[in-house]
Simulated scan of single mutants.
Amino acid sequence: MPLLWLRVALGFYTVGLLYALLALTRSNQLLNRIALPAMGLGMVFQFVSLTESILLSGHLTLASVHNSESLLAFLSIVFFMVVYLFYRTTSPGIVIFPIVFLLTFVAATGQQPFLFTSPGLKMGWLFAHIALIFTGYAALFLSFGASLLYLIQERSLKSKKPGILTALETIDEIGYRSLLFGFPFMTLGLIAGTVIAQSTYGRVNYLDLKILLSLLMWAVYLVMLYARWNAGWRGRRAAYLATGVFVAAVVAWAANYFSTIHRFVKS
Rank of each mutant, 00 (worst) to 15 (best):
L222Y: 06
L222V: 08
L222P: 07
V223I: 11
V223G: 04
V223H: 03
V223Y: 12
M224F: 11
M224C: 12
M224R: 11
M224Q: 14
M224I: 05
M224N: 15
L225P: 10
L225S: 14
L225A: 11
L225R: 07
L225Y: 06
L225F: 03
L225E: 12
Y226W: 12
Y226G: 12
Y226F: 14
A227V: 04
A227C: 07
A227T: 10
A227D: 12
A227F: 09
A227W: 05
A227P: 01
R228E: 15
R228F: 01
R228P: 03
W229Y: 11
W229K: 13
W229N: 15
W229V: 13
W229Q: 13
W229R: 10
N230G: 05
N230F: 13
N230E: 14
A231W: 08
A231Q: 15
A231S: 10
G232R: 09
G232F: 00
G232E: 07
G232D: 08
G232T: 02
W233I: 02
W233K: 02
W233M: 08
W233R: 06
R234N: 10
R234F: 05
R234V: 13
R234I: 04
R234Y: 02
R234T: 15
R234D: 11
G235M: 00
G235S: 10
G235Q: 05
G235L: 04
G235P: 00
G235R: 08
G235V: 00
G235W: 00
G235I: 02
R236S: 11
R236A: 15
R236F: 07
R236N: 03
R237V: 12
R237H: 13
R237S: 14
R237M: 09
R237C: 03
R237K: 14
A238D: 04
A238V: 00
A238E: 01
A238R: 02
A238T: 01
A238H: 00
A239D: 01
A239P: 01
A239V: 01
A239M: 01
Y240V: 03
Y240K: 06
Y240R: 03
Y240H: 12
Y240L: 15
Y240E: 05
Y240I: 10
L241R: 05
L241G: 03
L241Q: 09
L241H: 10
A242H: 03
A242Y: 00
A242G: 09
A242S: 15
A242V: 10
A242T: 15
A242E: 15
A242K: 00
A242M: 09
T243S: 15
T243N: 13
T243C: 13
G244L: 02
G244M: 01
G244E: 11
G244D: 07
G244P: 07
G244C: 03
V245T: 06
V245W: 00
F246H: 06
F246V: 05
F246M: 10
F246R: 03
V247F: 08
V247W: 02
V247E: 09
V247M: 05
V247D: 08
V247C: 08
V247Q: 06
A248F: 14
A248N: 02
A248Q: 02
A248S: 15
A249H: 09
A249T: 14
V250Q: 14
V250I: 15
V250S: 08
V250C: 07
V250Y: 07
V250N: 05
V250H: 01
V250G: 04
V250L: 10
V251N: 06
V251W: 07
V251Y: 05
V251M: 10
V251P: 06
A252K: 02
A252F: 06
A252Y: 01
A252N: 10
A252T: 06
A252C: 04
W253F: 14
W253G: 08
